[in-house]
C-alpha cells in the first residue's frame, strides 16, 4: 500500500482523481436515494402550494434572515411535540425552494405557528417586539409597513412551476391580483384566491387595512400559513395519540 502511495505522490493527476473518487462516494450513497423519495413519501391530497401573497412573505422572511434564529422543523422528541405540536413531515416542505428548516433556535420554532396568534399581534410584534413580549431580543422591523412590490410575483410562480411546484397557468397569470385579493376580505378578488388555492386559505386584511397592500400583509400571511398547508401531520399525530 505504502509503495503504491509512494508512486501516487509523484503523479499530480493521480492525486486529483483519487481525491475526487474518495470524496464522491459518501455523497452519492446518501443523496442519490433521496431522489426516489417521490415514490416513497406521498404528498398528502390536501397539500396546497403557497399563495402568491404567502410566497412574497416567504421571500421577505428570507431577505431579513429570519431563518438564522427560527427553525421550521419540529423534531420527533416529546418536549418538542408538547411545546410546538406534531412533528414535521418531509411532505410539508416538498414545495419549498429552498427549505427553511433552520439550524438555530435563538427564537422558537415556527413550523406550527399558523393561526396561533392574531394578525394584530403579529403586526405589532414585528414593528416593536418588546411591546408585546417585554423580554424578547428579536430585532424590530418597522420598515415592513412599506408597499409590497408585486412586479416579480408572476415570474416567481412561473419559475417555481418549472421546478415542479403545482402552479398552473391561471395561477401564474393571476398572481398579482391574487396577492391583492388575499388582503381584501369580502371582495371578488378574495373569493378568487380561495377558488384557486382552497377554501381554507386565510383571506384577511393582515396589516389591518384592506385598502393597502404592504410587506406586512405578505409576512403575516406567510406566518399564518405555517403548518396549515396540509392537515396530514395533525391527523397522523391524532392517530398516534389513540
Amino acid at each position: 500500500m505504502l509503495r503504491l502511495h509512494y508512486n501516487l505522490e509523484k503523479l499530480s493527476m493521480g492525486l486529483v482523481v483519487g481525491i475526487i473518487v474518495a470524496a464522491s462516494i459518501g455523497g452519492i450513497v446518501e443523496i442519490a436515494p433521496l431522489f426516489t423519495i417521490d415514490e416513497t413519501v406521498e404528498i398528502p391530497d390536501d397539500m396546497r402550494p403557497q399563495t402568491p401573497l404567502e410566497l412574497a412573505g416567504r421571500e421577505i422572511y428570507i431577505r431579513e434572515g429570519c431563518y438564522a434564529c427560527h427553525s421550521q422543523m419540529v423534531r420527533s422528541l416529546a418536549d418538542e411535540l408538547d411545546r410546538y405540536g406534531p412533528y414535521s413531515l418531509a411532505a410539508e416542505s416538498a414545495y419549498d425552494h429552498p427549505m427553511l428548516w433552520g439550524s438555530k433556535r435563538t427564537g422558537p420554532d415556527l413550523a406550527r405557528l399558523g393561526e396561533k396568534y392574531s394578525d394584530d399581534w403579529h403586526s405589532q410584534h414585528l414593528i416593536d417586539p418588546r411591546s408585546v413580549v417585554p423580554a424578547s431580543i428579536m430585532p424590530a422591523y418597522p420598515w415592513l409597513i412599506r408597499p409590497l412590490d408585486t412586479e416579480i410575483l408572476s415570474d416567481q410562480l412561473a419559475t417555481l412551476a418549472k421546478l415542479g411546484v403545482p402552479y398552473d397557468a391561471e395561477m401564474i397569470a393571476a398572481a398579482v391580483g391574487d396577492a391583492i385579493g388575499q388582503s381584501q376580505p369580502d371582495s371578488d378578488a378574495g373569493d378568487a384566491v380561495r377558488e384557486r388555492y382552497g377554501a381554507d386559505v386565510a383571506v384577511r386584511a393582515f396589516d389591518g387595512d384592506p385598502a393597502r397592500l404592504t410587506e406586512m400583509d405578505a409576512v403575516v400571511a406567510y406566518l399564518q400559513s405555517l403548518g396549515t398547508l396540509t392537515n396530514a401531520p395533525y391527523e397522523l399525530f391524532a392517530e398516534g395519540a389513540q
Binding site: E30, L34, F35, I37, S93
Partner: peptide, 19 residues
C-alpha cells in the same frame, strides 16, 4: 427568476435540499 435580476430559486426542495 429573471436573467436581469438577482432573485433565484434553488432547484432542490424540501428534504433533498436539506440533505
Amino acid at each position: 427568476v429573471r436573467w436581469n435580476g438577482a432573485d433565484s430559486f434553488t432547484i432542490w426542495a424540501g428534504v433533498q435540499d436539506a440533505m
